[in-house]
């Protein structure tokens, strides 16, 4: 069902490193799941609208009033690396 190399392509999109053997296993699982949902794909639903939300009587929009949020230590206190008040992240390959 799932074509070969699919898992690698998806893993690249999803930024997921897969351990050795993990990709094969996931490819099998994905294939089985996709095969299962084939029945749904076959249903003639062209004229049926989609239901993306089921919320009823929900909250409206917010008024444009500003309020202070988190101190930098509360907001970025868990970050792996910082440079002063900045979040520090690894460089990008283009920079090299």
């Amino acid at each position: 069902m799932a074509e070969h190399g699919l898992v690698q392509r998806l893993a690249a999109l999803a930024r997921l490193e897969l351990a050795e053997g993990e990709a094969d296993r996931l490819e099998r699982d994905l294939g089985a799941i996709l095969e299962h949902v084939e029945r749904l794909r076959a249903l003639p639903l062209r004229d049926v609208g989609a239901t993306y939300w089921t919320a009823e009587a929900a909250q409206g929009m917010r008024e444009d009033v500003s309020r202070s949020g988190l101190d930098v230590e509360d907001g970025l206190g868990s970050a792996a690396a910082r440079s002063g008040r900045y979040l520090l992240v690894p460089g990008m390959r283009e920079d090299a």
Binding site: R15, E17, S78, A79, A81, L87, V89, G91, R93, A96
Partner: peptide, 17 residues
């Protein structure tokens, strides 16, 4: 990046992965 442990890599993309 902002929380949780970060695994290092050669660059940002590898660190993400």
């Amino acid at each position: 990046m902002r929380y949780g442990p970060r695994a290092e890599g050669q660059d940002l993309v590898e660190s993400y992965h």
